[in-house]
Design a protein around this nucleic acid. Structure first.
Lengths: 200, 200, 200, 200
DNA sequence: TGATAAGCGAGACGGTACGTCCAGTCTTGTG
DNA sequence: CACAAGACTGGACGTACCGTCTCGCTTATCA
């Protein structure tokens, strides 16, 4: 970590390479602007101005504003978000889906996520990048509750964990992205109950 | 010759009222631009130029480019899309979900739909409008297979048709909008089978 | 002139065509900036800002800042600058050369002229345009005193008026553009005397 | 091995002092860029890149790009350009003016010279520096033919050599800088003949 | 015989202006 | 009265250089 610490030292551009200070300011500014003014209010000029950074510095390290948002999003997710493991599938699933719907619909990071999903609809190249950098990890997380249960032997050995996970989280995403209806506990309980009933 | 026909008569600005010709040219131009150049390539200037229409004429009748796309989308859906009724729930469901995933992922109208869903993530006011004008109708359509089955008595009388429908279509939307994976027949069969199994 | 008066009516862009108001504001701003801040201080952004005009409006009508300065210069010269005709060659020449050196070296329009001559050194295409639009006229003016004298029969009929004019004004331009020394009366008298002596 | 030779030895920064290699590379690069791309194509970044030198090294030794061009120009003139002395005033004058017009209008060094004259119009401080470092020497050269003739007694003792020189070279500069017309032999002969005629 | 210090390459930085594109508003003349 | 036409203000785009700044390397000089 000494090298990293060295690199992170406060400076205004030099052979240390990139300024960590500028990088953080940009990510924060992008995040803030999205929350405050919405996606249309996020402009590279605005980000640069708010971050106290030259526009060129932004363009040096990021290609588009969505590229910045992806990195900001990853930064936000840097903390370990591993779903809790209670050793009880029903409880785990309910807790995870509640957290997921809260995250997607109510948090700032969720707002960034929705903006990026939106951008992915417009731009296939971005979609591929976004999926590789963010979604795949998120989907691995989504699968964790079922995978743990499978390891504990609570599930039929031939169960397709990935497909079942999609059936569980799909309706949650659907509500958040498409219908905009709140994801209440009844809805989640319904999902989990139906899944558990299907196991018998 | 009815009044409507009179109004729609070919003209370049007069006291007959709105030019139907201009309206159609604008919708078509917007549609074409979206398919050809993607959402970023859709601009009001571009639409007006391609439609051979003055910018002012566009602004007179529509507020935003998404407003135009909504209308274009509704136009595309003008034909009756009522899902076929085979009198057999399993078959109806499979056919409908197949059509849905094809529509969302493979057709031009689906591309417009995805663009509008994307815009809804960025703009709550638009989201409300879009849901009222397009989505509610689509969701009513989504529910049709189950509602018909319920009317035929094939379903438990206390079944929550709306919630069950969400569990069926949610994963399809999830694949189209989020993961981008193709929705193959296995995936649909899995959804339908799980649902039918849950009825017993 | 009714059409022109019509066109010049106060407006903010419409089918009248170009806004005369904006045009004048731009030319004035360019002129002022040159005098106040020097050539490097003349930027299209600065002109637009000072003229209270959108940058796009500047670019719509002019290609470069020197293009604007040429037009501003022509505007400045709109008043009739015909050299006075005293009917006396020696007096006419002295008066004209004095006026020329004053104009080139001491007036705001002269400052613009020098800036444009400078630009002509850097850019052959501009040089051609500048000569066609400004210099040729100026040179015709330069020749007037001799031409009048020729018409009065004060000069040998085979005298090359153009060449003689160059020998008279050349040293004045030389002082202004190259050495930067002031053009005093002695210098001008020397020029005129040498020319007159050569006639005998 | 002298100190100077020592200093000029190849090195990449050390206590020998300035790198002669870098200096030459910069001057050459500036010269080349001017000829190839015109004045606007001469940028400090471009010079540094082409010279294979760090930008900082350029800024260490020169203040502006015109400063570099002045030095490059002086370098180009390092060879002795003393006008030839045939012992015949008419011949000397003709030869010198021909050389002068060729130099100003047709050589690379002349292109640099014109660019610097142009810059002098824009920037009085530069003008003063340029005149002190380049022009005064050039003007001394300009006077040589007449001064030699005066020393030989071919001219009236009270003749103002400086003023007469200005009348001879002024029209040449005028053609080169202002009208852009080629300076042909007829023009030069006319100048010289008129001057010689004035002596009688 | 090292430590020191100057010139060097590299290149990131905060800025300014560039020239372009589109948004959204406006004012006309025509049918 | 809707239309085509198109000039207008305004603002973000992405690029090019500006001039400044640290940095690590290389080397002669001197302690």
């Amino acid at each position: 970590m000494t090298g990293a610490a060295h690199t992170a030292r406060r400076h205004h551009g030099n052979r240390h390479g990139r300024s960590e200070e500028a990088r953080r300011a940009v990510l924060e500014a992008a995040d803030d602007l999205l929350v405050e003014k919405g996606f249309a209010g996020v402009t590279i000029e605005g980000i640069a101005a708010r971050a106290g950074v030259a526009k060129q510095t932004v363009y040096r390290w990021w290609k588009t504003k969505t590229d910045i948002l992806v990195e900001a999003f990853l930064q936000d997710l840097a903390e370990d978000l591993t779903p809790p493991d209670h050793g009880d599938l029903a409880r785990d699933l309910r807790a995870y889906l509640r957290w997921l719907s809260f995250f997607l619909g109510r948090t700032d990071a969720g707002a960034v996520f929705r903006a990026l999903i939106a951008q992915a609809q417009h731009d296939p190249a971005f979609a591929a990048d976004f999926r590789a950098r963010c979604l795949d990890r998120q989907r691995a997380l989504d699968r964790l509750p079922l995978e743990r249960a499978a390891r504990r032997g609570e599930l039929p050995p031939d169960l397709d964990v990935a497909a079942e996970t999609e059936r569980l989280v799909g309706p949650v995403y659907y509500r958040v992205l498409v219908t905009g209806e709140p994801v209440d506990d009844d809805f989640i309980d319904g999902l989990v109950d139906a899944f558990l009933a299907g196991l018998r």
